[in-house]
Structures are given as structure tokens and as C-alpha cells.
Design a protein around this nucleic acid. Sequence first.
DNA 1: GCCCGTCGTCGAAACGCTTCGACTAAGCGG
DNA 2: CCGCTTAGTCGAAGCGTTTCGACGACGGGC
Lengths: 353, 353
Amino acid sequence: MATMHDVARLARVSVSTVSYVLTGTRPISEATRTRVLAAMAELDYQPNAMARGLATRRSRIVGLLMPMDERGLGATETAFVTGAAAAASAAGYHLVLSPVGAADHDVLRRLATQGMFDGVVLMEVQVEDDRVAALQEAGLPVVLIGRTGDTAGLSYVDIDFEQTVHEAVDHLVGLGHRRIVYVNHSADAIAAGYGPALRTRDAFCAAMARHGLEPVMIAAEDSAAGGRAALSAAVAQVPDLTAVLAMNESAIFGILGELAIRHRAVPGDVSVVSMVTSPQVAELAHPALTAMTSPGAALGRIAMEALLRQLEGVAKEHHQQLLPCALEVRGSTGPAARTGGDVGLTGSGPPDT
Amino acid sequence: MATMHDVARLARVSVSTVSYVLTGTRPISEATRTRVLAAMAELDYQPNAMARGLATRRSRIVGLLMPMDERGLGATETAFVTGAAAAASAAGYHLVLSPVGAADHDVLRRLATQGMFDGVVLMEVQVEDDRVAALQEAGLPVVLIGRTGDTAGLSYVDIDFEQTVHEAVDHLVGLGHRRIVYVNHSADAIAAGYGPALRTRDAFCAAMARHGLEPVMIAAEDSAAGGRAALSAAVAQVPDLTAVLAMNESAIFGILGELAIRHRAVPGDVSVVSMVTSPQVAELAHPALTAMTSPGAALGRIAMEALLRQLEGVAKEHHQQLLPCALEVRGSTGPAARTGGDVGLTGSGPPDT
DNA sequence: GCCCGTCGTCGAAACGCTTCGACTAAGCGG
DNA sequence: CCGCTTAGTCGAAGCGTTTCGACGACGGGC
């Protein structure tokens, strides 16, 4: 409640002197400095954020822009948020969470022009995403989590899907698997240009090709039911599959459930690798899932740090970085079954929803 | 980038007139209003948030204060956040996410005095929590998610643990269960005064007493391993238990895993009810868990709306509200086994980590 | 003994908005 | 026809900072 005026009066100096003590922009004698500091302490003075923001034209507020659909955030997205929040807070910035749909153009521009944000981190970027352009036009520093198709002139941090898929496939092939099915996100997501789905699809093809194997891919709705359906489809297409690689965090449990119903043991008959998964989720399954653990919090933190560096003028170039997911072998993968044959194929259960 | 000055000049009116058009605090003739509006549109004018905040002494920013430990947020907490964010955004407020530990007193006071927040929602409140007092001293409107022991003069929204536990117990008793074990949060959490743990403990005692049954309770660490250990302990203490009621979202999968190891079928031999759980998590298990679904997003939304009402001066009284979790029967509960006996007790497997 | 640069401080002008008091021009009841 | 209210507008004074230009004092090089 106390203002700089009060402090100045109590310390018998001018307001500007108090400001200089605070910001250190001009030399101040030791004597007055201590007098001013004492006055501040006595009055329990805190500089007013709004006033400071107005005068400096820097709010020390950064935005975290993300679509917040009904279903809420998955573990990985939540990790982005907490990582970014921690980094911002550590640097003395405030982080505002702005739910902004992929199509909310005007909302976005309003946010950008209001002068409330020094910069923003944009999550859930599509391969084609004009929000990026809108923000840049407004002159707002932006860092992406995820990336557009054309990344020229952009700062981003993303998961290295190519690398991650290759590692996962290598792991399975190394265990002797040959008939591997990739369960991706939904066909809708792919059609909509959802980056992770697209990139993992291509990477899976490439990885399988490198081993001289044929890539089989199934799209799954983001739900347990979707997972069950996907597994049914997979078995129908490749009856003697020995491994499933799944991108879809929501579908994975449906996949496991359907495998159980069909009496295919994991990892005895079928090995399962879950991609871009948080350890917590991987531990939930039984057996615990061998997974590519997403560097969620790290990604959020790195993105935020890159943004702040840009704001502070430390970095002028763009920050572009890919982080692979780390392979963590747990209980759901093992050597490929000897006979690639038709184990348990008979009970080709109902497609189920 | 355009300021009110520019708009005023272009519309050939004074700055104050532009302001009145914007805020509607004084009558403006239709003619000038349209002229001003046209000028705004032409210049693509957006009022500067900082300047407005400084002049009105209202930032239209609210804080969401929560401890953000290493492990990150659970599904329920995440729902609080998204619910609150959506509500704030819908009302034209900005929501800043502030990781603030339970002990960060000075950080809290600094946040409160900086004038950046019009009000705050405080999450993860302890039964004894002096942060609440600190915030109130600073004159900041506060709404809690969760509640302290003494709620006089406070606004809060919380889960109705009493009601929730009673419903859960009634459900199990209604299915014929008599030997029900409650798996709570860790002993540490209870000792630290973690409200949900305390309140469910008491409620469980009361609910069991009402049915003339003896309450058996086990504390579990928040992990799958903790769940396994807890179930082992439970079986040791009540060999013929037929139902488990679990509070601990992290431990629940350990409990299920350990049951599987001990060849106790769910729900054939043992029924399991998970408390304060999100549907997504409940669906992950196999069989899907009968659970008390936490009203996560609703809680966040209601808390935020209460805060905003307070800020707008609409509501003067305090908002105190409890929401029960909704019982959603899925596959993990069924009639109590006929013979309460020693089914599967022989294979009293290793405590496992 | 001068001139100049640096140190330490001050006053005032921004920053972009809201809001108060005042003023003009109508409209209107008596 | 006069004084009152009311609609409509303006200018100026804030809001609490930062920052720029200025100014006195002081010390050093010559």
C-alpha cells in the first residue's frame, strides 16, 4: 500500500532516488541507499506491478497459450505446464494460462495487442497453424512447444519423434520382433494435421523400412474403446503380430485390455511399447509398460527459458531444439515368441464398440 | 500500438470521450460514439492492460496459488486448474499460475502486495494453514479449494468427503460386504494435517460405525509400491476382507496388482472402490474401477466464479460449498463372496518392494 | 587556478488510461 | 422568461513507476 512517494518522504530523498536504489540504474551513495532501504523496510514497501509495467512497457508476464478442450490435459501436457510455470516463476515472471482454441483468431490478436504479455509459449501447434503468424505480426516473442511444418524463423522445442520411434522400433527388432503394428492417434487427428501423429507415422515407416520390414499402422480414437477397436483391427490385419507400438496414451489401456481378453500374454505373446508416456501412467499398467518417457517438464522448462532469454535480449537467434523420449524398459516387452504363428488367434473376439 | 490519444485525434474528440465510449460510464451521443468506434476499428485499437490496471487499480488478473512439487499434478488437481482457467477466461480475467510452496511466506506476501492480483484461489490447503491469514491480511480476496479446520469468515469450495465416504461404504455394505478396509494416504500426509486424509479417515469410522462394522484403515505411500504394501498389510490384518476402499489415486493400481498376484479376483473375491478419482483413471484399470468421481473441473470453476463474484462486488457473504463425488459403478465391485473365508490366502506373496 | 568529467541527487515529463469537475446547450415546468 | 435539470463533451488531475536532463560538488590533470 505504501508508494514510492511515502518511502521518499520518509527517507528524505526524491522519488527518483528511490527508484534508482531499486533499479540500480544510477549510482547512489551508500548513506542514502541504506536510508532508503530502511524506509522501505519500515513501510513494508512493494513496488506496484502495474505502474512499473506501464512505465517500463514490460509486464513481466508471459502467456502459456493452449487449447483447453473438454477432456482436459493429459499427463504430458500437464508436465509442459508445470515445467513452464516453474521456470517462469524462478525467473521472477508471472505465467498466465490462456485457454485459446486453435481457431480463436481475434481472441489471440486481442491478447497479443493488449500489452499484457511480454511473450508467449504456444502449445499444441498444428503443422499448419496461422496462430503463429498472428502472434508474430503483433510483434510478440513466441516460443512453440511442438512445431509447424515450416519452422523458418521460429523458436520451438519439440519431442524428437523421429528419434523416438527409431529407438522404439530398434528395441523391438532387437528382441526379435518382425511383425510390429503401430497404433497411432485417430484418423481425424491425422487429417487435421496433428504433428505428432504425422511425424511418428512417417518415422515408423522409415524405421521399419530400415530393417526391411513392412510398416502396418492403425489409427485409434483417443479412448480405451478406441484402443480395443484398434487392437482388433490390428489382429485382423496381421494375425501373427508379436509387438504393438502405441502412440496413443488414452488407447493404450484398451489395447492391453483387449490383449487380455484374447488371452495373448504380455509380453509372452505380444510385446507392447507405449510412446510419449509419463512414467506415472506407465507404472499404472500391469505389467508396467515399457515406454518412451516423454521429457514433459523439461520441454516446458526449456521453452520458457528460451522465451525469457529472448525477452531479456540475451539471445537473438532462434532456439530450435528436439528432445527424444527416453526408452525405459519395464515389463511389457520381451523376446518375440518363437513361432510367429497363430497363437490365440481363434478367439478373434468381437470388434467391441 | 495505437493509444487512446490516436483514436481521439482521429475521431476529433477528447481522450475522455473515447474512454466513456469504452466504459459507458457517461452518456455519449450516437453520432460521436459511432465516430469513435470507427476510429478504433481503423486504428485497430486495443486498450493497454497495464495502463488500465494502473488507473482503475484492478488488474483483472487473478492468481491460482498451488504448491507444485516435483511429482507434478494428479488428474484431479489438473481438473481444478483447467476448470478455474476456463471460468476466469470466460469472465474476461487472466489467470496466473503461481507455484507457491506451503511455507513460502514472504513470497506469498510479496505476491499479495504487488497489486498484481485482484484476488486468488488457493489450492491444497492444509487443516492448519497460515497462508490463508497472510493473504487476508494483505486484503486480498481469497477463495480456497479445500478448507482449513476453522472456516469462519472464509470462502471455500471443497469435496464433501463425509458424504462421499458414506456413499461408498453404503454401496459396499449394500452389496453384502462387512469386512471393508480403507486405504488412505500416507501416514506422513495424515500427520502433516492433509485435510482429505483426515476427513475421510473420520468419515470412514463414522460410516462403518453406523453399520455396526469395525473400521480398519491402512496408510499407503502415494505410489504403486505403496499400494501393494498396503494391500499386503490389509490382508495380514483382515485375512478375510472382501472389499477395499481406496483414497489414494497413486496406490490404487498397486492394490489391484497385488490382488492379482494373490489370485484374488476383482470383483469376485474382493470388491474395490476408488475414491476421488477421475473417470479417465478409473477407465484405465481392468476391470474398470467403480469409483467416486471427483467433481474436479466443476470445483475449479465454482471456486473461480465465487471469487469473481466477490471481486465484482456482487456477493458480499462468503461462499462455502461442499460437492460430493458421484458414485459411478463400473466393474470392480460386486456382491460379497459367500464364504468370507480364506480364499487365496495361502499365497501370501512377498511384500514386493 | 581552470576546465572537465564523474558522482549523487533532484524535478519533471512521460507511460496510457480513468474519472472528476466544469461548462455548454438544450429541454421544461412554473 | 427564468432558473433547473440533464445530456454531451472537454480539460486536467491523478494512478505509481521509470527515465531524462540538469545541476552542484568534487577531484584531477595541466
